[in-house]
Amino acid sequence: MNIFRLLGDISHLLAIIILLRKIWMSRSCAGISGKSQLLFGLVYTTRYLDLITSYISLYNSVMKVVFLAASYATIYLMYVKFKATYDHNHDTFRIEFLVVPAVALALLINHDFQVVEILWTFSIYLESVAILPQLFMVSKTGEAESITSHYLFALGVYRGLYLLNWIYRFWAEDHYDLIAIVAGVVQTVLYCDFFYLYITKVLRGKKLQLPA
């Protein structure tokens, strides 16, 4: 464990808590893409199946359980409890365009052709693009609430910090995983345009609004 990874995990956790808290306190999931949340649920489920098969550390296991529980809770709030506030007219990204290629790529490019390994690989590929329905929704409505922007920023920072973690691990431990690194770069790049808007608008107290 190094500082980049720890900060990355904290940022990831913070993003999830910001989102859950926003939905719970406002009793509304307006502006949030349920499709992105479903994809993240699928990402955590397929990646953390190894909770049963391999033990890394108490920290690792606890975080996995927390991510799974928080993800399912978010999906429950969006699709059951506060279903009436879900803005599905604007959440129109076709997720099969992400899931099908992620499945295909996981079958083609993986470390080992075994069920748990393929599922892990699928989760890495899918995670890299899972935010697209949310970004699509923001671009469709042309704006995002500040709290939604904070959520997206924390989520983007998480993978950015993981990139620093991978550079550090390559240098300090001779450890690297090309699948995770390439997908992580793609994932971080997808947030770049948003980072720019966040820094130039939201941090200066303005609402995140896209030019018409």
């Binding site: 990831h12 190894d50 690792n60 996995k64 993986n110 470390h111 080992d112 450890h175 090309l178 995770a180």
Partner: peptide, 10 residues
């Protein structure tokens, strides 16, 4: 297929 590193990250 390459050698799989241990998946010790989240």
């Amino acid at each position: 297929t390459t050698e799989a590193p241990e998946h010790d990250e989240l």
